[in-house]
Design a protein around this nucleic acid. Sequence first.
DNA 1: TCCGTCGTCGGTTTTACGTCA
DNA 2: CATGACGTAAAACCGACGACG
Length: 208
Amino acid sequence: MADEEECNTGLGLGLSVGRYYLPKGKSQKDSPPPPCLDLSVALCPREGAPKVDSSSSRTMEEEEDKKRDCKNNSKNISGRKKLRLTKEQSSLLENSFKLHTTLNPAKKQALAEQLNLKPRQVEVWFQNRRARTKLKQTEVDCEFLKKCCESLSEENRRLKKELQELRSLKAAAPPPLFIQIPKATTLSMCPSCEKIEGKPDVVLKNNK
DNA sequence: TCCGTCGTCGGTTTTACGTCA
DNA sequence: CATGACGTAAAACCGACGACG
């Protein structure tokens, strides 16, 4: 997972060479179509027609893609909001994302033309892709912190037990002149542990 | 300093699609 | 088989924010 989800948190700076962007508070519904090529009609049949593989499942997939393309077209024309990207489109976008997680206007335009998509769609895809990457990274971090927490809890349990043993040892023995508490134990004891034990002053008294 | 533009983000909505009873 | 409910992934949208000129 990690190799695929390379977390590139670096921010890319785009060159401001004009763009297609919806005005604030406006959606595509109430905006005139952007000045870009709408090549949706060219999608079906699309370029690079599916090679008929020997495996039937592969062929089925390709057929599904084709069907999807056709559906997308008809709906695109009627102003449908969402289309499903084909495998070819997705993988090209994916490859581009691996090289750079952000877009500059030229790259956006080039990808859009290459994929027969609108620049806005390419842009949205990158936005969503970044969000997915971040979400996955968050999940990974969360898992790591959970493990840390578990190991610290375990360590805490162990230290408490050690403390308990030392105390019972002390209680069983006759009162010595000096109690030599191991340094390591003393150092690793935190104030909150003392409170939990309910006798925060015991050690201090013994050390006098 | 204020303003407009642009790119990005986080959050949300909408839709396509797979699964299961 | 087919169909409807349901869950999920992802495309699309929206508003906010910061950088920049």
